[in-house]
Deep mutational scan, measured.
Amino acid sequence: DEETLERIAKELKEKGWTLIVNGKLITDAREALKWLLEEEERR
């Protein structure tokens, strides 16, 4: 759910983690959240 996604995005940002999505590096939590939401919609 959205709360979980926001928590994940926040944790990613705090830890300075990066996500690699389709070979693209995502360092911004907002971008990561946007991607996660798009993935949820596809299901």
Rank of each mutant, 00 (worst) to 15 (best):
L25N: 04
K13V: 13
I8Y: 03
W35Q: 04
I8F: 04
A9M: 14
L36A: 00
L19W: 11
W17C: 15
A29S: 02
I20M: 06
A29N: 01
L12K: 01
E38M: 11
E2V: 12
E6K: 11
D1F: 15
L36H: 00
D28G: 10
L12P: 01
K10T: 08
V21A: 04
K15S: 06
E41G: 10
E41W: 14
R30P: 02
L12Q: 01
E38D: 07
L36S: 00
W35F: 10
A9N: 05
T27G: 06
I20T: 02
G23C: 15
E2N: 07
K15G: 15
E39I: 13
K24V: 13
K34L: 11
A32G: 02
K24R: 08
R30S: 05
E40K: 06
L25I: 10
E14H: 02
E38I: 06
N22E: 10
E11Y: 14
R7Y: 04
I20E: 02
R43K: 10
G16P: 00
R7G: 04
L5E: 04
E14D: 13
G16T: 04
T18H: 09
T18M: 12
N22M: 14
E6P: 03
A9R: 10
I26S: 02
D28W: 15
E40T: 09
D28S: 06
K24P: 02
L33K: 00
K15L: 12
L19V: 11
L19P: 08
K15W: 14
K34D: 05
E2W: 15
L33S: 00
T18P: 12
K10W: 01
R42E: 01
E6Q: 08
A29Y: 12
R42Q: 07
E31Q: 08
E31W: 08
I26L: 08
R30Q: 06
R42F: 07
R43A: 09
N22R: 02
N22W: 13
I26M: 07
G16D: 07
L37E: 05
V21G: 01
I20N: 02
W17Y: 08
V21I: 13
E40S: 12
E3Y: 11
K15N: 11
T4E: 07
K34M: 08
D1G: 12
L36T: 00
A32R: 00
E40L: 15
G23L: 13
E3S: 11
R42V: 04
T18C: 15
R7K: 09
L5N: 03
T18G: 12
G16A: 09
G23A: 11
T4S: 07
L36W: 08
R43C: 15
K34N: 05
E31H: 03
L19E: 04
R42G: 05
G23M: 07
L33Q: 00
T4Q: 06
L37P: 00
W35M: 07
W17H: 04
T4I: 13
V21K: 02
E41F: 10
K15H: 12
L19D: 07
E3C: 15
V21R: 00
I26V: 08
